[in-house]
Design a protein around this nucleic acid. Structure first.
Lengths: 123, 123
DNA sequence: AGGTCATATCAGTGGCCACTGATGTAACCC
DNA sequence: GGGTTACATCAGTGGCCACTGATATGACCT
């Protein structure tokens, strides 16, 4: 953990990246890249369960990464800002040109290839 | 978790962000923003213990975010690409202009009522 | 009103992983 | 050689948090 003074803002920035650092949340953000979606649309696009998706959406909302617009009994979510999309695009670049195929942190790699939950879900 | 086919690349991208999603690793990357550093320099800049820093460096190296150059009994680390620095800069922007003060994911917040960072910053 | 649909929230569980302390390896010095 | 310095790796532990299943809220309908 950081003890320097500059470390303060670092911690905040790390938290921002945490919003993007997980397949479920990132999948939601990707789903929102070309337009607002309702929760159920997001659910079917990502394969997440509804409570799980709502949970992550609440997290992304609190973090200011997405915006919410109530719409009757629906709720429209959209990216809060185009910069969020830019982060995703830039990540795509880094991923394809810099980190390339190399990018598999062998460290902290379990056995997996398939998340136990997804596996149990039958695919 | 994502079960779609596109989910594969999402998972990879999430992993990329994971490299940036933690104060220790992010602090290391910030320390490398203005030039290569040896491990002990990084250790004193970040306040991390040496094994911990080495561990994260190995992770960042495997992920292709930093590059390593052996130098006698030292080891120089640098950002692998300027795009990594760009990601950090863009994150700064998002943080200051978009997520602003709002950015406190109250969800998954352990004890407190105030974000530890903002609180300790004296405001 | 009662029923259904869309979403939100809750409690509990399990797994991942950040950290530490100890140890290993290798390069430099005398 | 022996000692020291710089770094890497290991084993073990603890905490955070993603997920599930159940339940709550609230909007719409007839």
């Amino acid at each position: 953990m950081l003890i320097t003074d500059a470390g303060r803002s670092v911690e905040l920035k790390a938290k921002l990246f945490r919003g993007l650092a997980e397949a479920s949340r990132l999948g939601i953000l990707e789903a929102l890249r070309d337009g607002p979606r309702t929760v159920s649309e997001i659910v079917s696009m990502t394969g997440l369960t509804q409570p799980n998706a709502s949970n992550h959406l609440a997290c992304l909302l609190g973090c200011g990464l997405v915006a919410r617009e109530p719409l009757g009994r629906f709720a429209l979510y959209r990216l809060a800002d185009e910069r969020v999309g830019s982060l995703l695009s830039l990540a795509d670049e880094v991923l394809s040109e810099v980190a390339r195929g190399v990018y598999v942190c062998p460290r902290y790699e379990t056995d997996d290839r398939e998340h136990p939950v997804a596996a149990r879900r039958g695919r």
